[in-house]
Amino acid sequence: MIEIKDLHKSYKMGSNSLHVLKGINFKAEKGELVAIMGSSGSGKSTLLNIIGMLDLADTGEYVLDEVPIKNLSETKAAQYRNKFLGFVFQSFNLINYKNAIENVALPLYYQRVGRKERQEKALNYLDKVGLKEWATHLPSELSGGQKQRVAIARAMAAEPKVLLADEPTGALDSKTSYEVMDLIQNINDEGNTILVVTHEEDIAHMCKRIVHLKDGVIVEDKKVEQVRASEYVQ
């Protein structure tokens, strides 16, 4: 599903150049649930941004579902993001003046899905994350966990090939974190490929594979015994 070869990325900081990714080789098959770990500055977010086409690599290859991703124009990148990728952010990034169902329906709007079908699909995904009753509530009326579940429903609504989650539990307490991870595991069980960036060990162990990044290189890549989040959820 994802294939990355010898990926380099550096940022210009004035006259200095900061080398963030120093030759990443990484592969993820369909249906995997991968945790990307590392301390801050290790380059894990940069890697996720490049995979998410929010940022461009300097050199190296990146193939997503057999489509080589290179020389992307803004428009092309937007198209690919819309078609291939779903995002879940640490700070939820819901549009605050749109209610839950409208937020979930937004990627479908950019897929040019008709209004009625959008509403149906969005409600369906809200139901999946257990927030059907909250469909007409604004983000400000939802708790953090609920907001993140709306964000996950939104990411899933576009039916992406890969779900990218950047610290999805970073702003949540542990109980809510486990609920969110439970949801992510369920989505993964349905066969979706998911990449989770986190620096929390317990969250990482709820994935099937952990990739450790340090100073821009992968230092460890191991399969783990998945801890089911449902064990912690009453």
């Binding site: 998410g52 428009t75 937007a78 198209q79 993001r81 990034n93 937004l106 990627p107 576009a158």
Partner: peptide, 15 residues
């Protein structure tokens, strides 16, 4: 920020 969100969800610059 809203524009950023919309773009992440697949909005093209011209839209």
């Amino acid at each position: 920020r809203e524009i950023g969100i919309r773009k992440a969800l697949g909005a093209k610059p011209w839209s």
